[in-house]
Design a protein around this nucleic acid. Sequence first.
DNA 1: ATGATATTGATAATCATTATCAATTAATTT
DNA 2: AAATTAATTGATAATGATTATCAATATCAT
Lengths: 149, 149
Amino acid sequence: MKEEQSLFANYLKSKGLKMTSARRTVLRAFIKSEGHLSAEDLLAAAKKIDPGLGQATVFRTLKLLSDAGLAQDACQEEGPRRYEHVYKQSHHDHLICIGCGKMIEFCHPEIEKAQNEIFKKFGFRGTGHKLELRGLCADCARKLDEENK
Amino acid sequence: MKEEQSLFANYLKSKGLKMTSARRTVLRAFIKSEGHLSAEDLLAAAKKIDPGLGQATVFRTLKLLSDAGLAQDACQEEGPRRYEHVYKQSHHDHLICIGCGKMIEFCHPEIEKAQNEIFKKFGFRGTGHKLELRGLCADCARKLDEENK
DNA sequence: ATGATATTGATAATCATTATCAATTAATTT
DNA sequence: AAATTAATTGATAATGATTATCAATATCAT
């Protein structure tokens, strides 16, 4: 998306940083990406554009994307850190099954509203939130019950 | 707390695992702990009880405590994984300032209610949730505005 | 173009966590 | 209570993820 490109460019300029070809490559790979991606994932995607790209550069650029507000942490408990788009996709929260790991994305306007109340109450200027519900999906709950019979 | 002790003992028995003196030590240290603690923190606390305790045992036991439902991930973006009590303290969510890192704990019944609706809608048996709101606290928002003037 | 400075990729270093393993310990059985 | 069986321990090595270092290079403002 053009918007993400110019947001990143503006961020870099505002910090006295440079728009380089490596950063453009990582940004392009990130923009094309979907879901929750790790630095490793992004490296693989970016290497398809420029095979000579270094791993460290991806870590560094991913951090910049996060600082610039384009990427945000999609906090999974296990494994490497994962990021997702801030723009581009509609906001969603996560429902995760602790049995099989299945993840459902959902959106609940009431919750959004309540969050804004909290921000106001504590004098915060809200920038985002992350909500993760955990539980057992119907299948896993059934299995568990059978085991414990 | 006695309750946490017997919950852990029951968990171990149900899995055919053993209640050992090392595990008792880690459990005691965990029970006395507060807030968000890393494996390293817990090791330090447990070593005050038994200096000979090994680091690996703390990682292992912390995982067990989590599986047993006594500890849960208190997901911070940076640094090592952190855990907090599931029992003992009233449920709370987190409001974090992305400027200075200040963290406020709060509780909002409306949100709790909405979460139960979600669980129902997707046929889940809910076991917990984590909500993290992020934004700029009043101080940091003011500072930022001045910088950008 | 030039100069000042940020950036790069390669690599080493670090940090957090997990795997390995022989010695020990807890629970179970006799 | 001793023997048996299997889980557990601490030390250490190994791994995985991320960050630091550094000389060569690329970017941007002038």
